[in-house]
Amino acid sequence: MSDLADALDLALEVGELVQLSGGHTSRTVDQMERIARALGAQEGHAAISSVNVAMTVSDGATRLSAGRHAGHLGINFSTLTALERLVDDTEAHGLTAAQVRARLTLIRHAGRVYPPWLVMLALGGSSAAFAVLFGAGLAGALLVLVGGTLGATVRHLLVARHKPPFVAVTSAAFVAALVVAGGIAWGGGSPASEPAMAAATLFLVPGVPMLNGTADLLTAHYLNGLVRLAMSAVIIGSAAAGLAAAVGVVGWLR
């Protein structure tokens, strides 16, 4: 493989990993173009869509273009940091293509930062903390802790089985809200007026797609921004549907 082909291939791999890790479009473009230039390309122009990364590089005499599928838009900020450091090191220390490839392999195959059971429990804890911030009492917060943990577990299991976001999020919201609404109703309260209910499904807030969508709009990557915001709208709508269904079921059973 020529030096230019190496630069193109590695830049595409960096772009794919940034996309998969929750980087907004400007970040993806910036890191692809920087690493391509650091590896010898005189010019590099990246083009990013919601599920593909493409690039054209040139060394003055030759021009090469290629694209790569970037699967889905995931979130892994540890990977994002590792990629940023790789690009910085390549620029500052003149890493070779082989060295960059070796580090990318390590980054791609890095293990989980936190075990899934801890993440589920922490999400339940986050929901319970939201409940306290909204004015819920101890009993309400405990219900949200249980509901949030169960809901997060349901989502994790469904996503692992490649269910679409609508199914995974609606199911997770339904389970979490059912636990909380059921507990409140069992205690003689009204789910519709209890602050704990407002926190029951907040572990599903699509923070990264919303913020990246906004970043894309503010940096004139309108199409990608709209895709991310549409994704956020589907998640919020699905969570609302699950929550409404759980409140309805509990109301019907009372």
Binding site: G22, I75, N76, F77, S78, T79, T81, R112, V113, Y114, L118, V119, A122, L123, G124, G125, S126, S127, A128, A129, F130, V132, L133, F203, V205, G207, V208
Partner: peptide
């Protein structure tokens, strides 16, 4: 009360695979 924001943020930080440090 605002101290609960620290608890609220931890679960999301873990979902985002934020480095422990």
């Amino acid at each position: 009360m605002s101290l609960w924001a620290a608890v609220a943020v931890l679960g999301f930080a873990m979902v985002f695979s934020v480095p422990r440090r």
